[in-house]
């Protein structure tokens, strides 16, 4: 995938934090703590590029997506869209920016209003952003959008329940495309789909990216899907990015123990590799984000843990002997997936 990569990022995130308060009491609510869903992350996104965000449930990847859309307001930090901080914008200025960042949600069953026709769903963004499509041209635009995502434009008056899961996800994508955004946040867009349908939707994402020069934030837990579609990948654990790099750096030369464990845990659809895989079995579960471990958050499950890990939080920096940033005091490259997979 040759991304036309300009020097200016379309989106840059600095020190993004989201804490959800935990309260006690009904009348006199007092805050007793906070779920640190996202706890200080930085990344850049360039035009036409796909940034994959992977991690297990509760790592903050979906919250990150919601923050970029400003569906939730960040507790701290800045989100620069073409150099302008949109984290604190409001009113008209915000509305103008928001047009450029759209989202495609995971569940095509609950993210479409069952009482609206497909035409209404895909055309609804035009009612809010009237300047994008003058009234007379809306129907035509909606039909074009349906065609772009591979649906029959004649089905414009049908309701969501008349479509299959894959088709519904296409409707969601058409809605996301309607305002011709520069960035689409894809939050687990294929995880509810069957393998045979999933491939169709992934191809559609790639086609649209080439056609419209879209930048994607692709949030998913399926590592092979992320690998296929992403130019760069960030791995999250408990609200932090633990490792980031291009697709080959993360998948072939992972340096953070968590990345290595995550990759090695993915079952490979090839029975000849059974028993030959270098599988790292992690103990226990992810700790609660309301009370993350001190120092390195992965230390409670890490096999390399030393005293320093509990005291000093490792920064996400390029460490000695590495070519990409890793947040581990003892980062070292260890290839865990067989790259010589038979073709």
């Amino acid at each position: 995938m040759e991304a036309s990569r300009s020097d200016e990022p379309v989106l840059e995130v600095r020190g993004l934090v989201k804490h959800f308060p935990l309260t006690k009491g009904i009348v006199f609510k007092r805050q007793v703590g906070a779920v640190r869903a996202v706890d200080g992350i930085d990344f850049k996104l360039y035009k036409g590029e796909t940034l994959g965000i992977v991690g297990e449930s509760g790592c903050g990847k979906s919250t990150t997506g919601r923050l970029l859309m400003r569906l939730d307001d960040p507790t701290e930090g800045q989100i620069f869209f073409h150099g302008e901080d949109i984290a604190k914008l409001s009113g008209k200025a915000f509305k103008a920016v928001r047009r450029n960042i759209q989202i495609v949600l995971q569940d095509p069953y609950s993210s479409l209003n069952p009482r609206m026709t497909v035409g209404d769903i895909v055309g609804e963004p035009f009612q809010i952003h009237k300047e994008v499509a003058p009234k007379g041209s809306r129907l035509k635009q909606v039909q074009e959008l349906l065609e772009v995502v591979g649906l029959n434009p004649e089905h414009i008056n049908r309701y969501p329940h008349q479509f299959s899961g894959g088709q519904r996800q296409r409707i969601g994508i058409a809605r996301g495309l309607a305002l011709r955004p520069e960035i689409i946040v894809c939050d687990e867009p294929v995880s509810a789909l069957d393998v045979s349908v999933q491939a169709q939707v992934i191809n559609l994402f790639e086609k649209l990216q080439n056609e419209f020069g879209l930048a994607y934030i692709f949030i998913a837990h399926d590592l092979s899907v992320v690998r296929h579609i992403s130019d760069r990948v960030s791995v999250m654990y408990l609200g932090k990015i633990v490792e980031t790099g291009d697709e080959a750096q993360i998948y072939e030369r992972p340096s953070h123990p968590y990345t290595q464990a995550l990759l090695s845990a993915v079952p490979v659809p090839d029975p000849t590799l059974r028993g030959h895989r270098d599988q790292i079995m992690l103990q226990g579960d992810v700790p609660s984000p309301a009370n993350p471990p001190s120092g390195c958050r992965f230390r409670t499950r890490c096999w390399k843990v030393q005293d320093i890990c509990a005291v000093e939080e490792p920064e996400l920096i390029v460490r000695k002997g590495l070519d990409h940033p890793s947040a581990c005091h003892f980062a070292e490259i260890r290839s865990v997936i067989d790259t010589q997979v038979a073709t």
């Binding site: 995938m1 169709q200 191809n203 296929h228 790259t339």
Partner: peptide
């Protein structure tokens, strides 16, 4: 149809 390493950057095979 499964995405695999050697398919990177190519269109995935699909079942229509």
């Amino acid at each position: 149809a499964i995405p695999r390493v050697d398919m990177k950057g190519q269109e995935l095979y699909t079942i229509k």
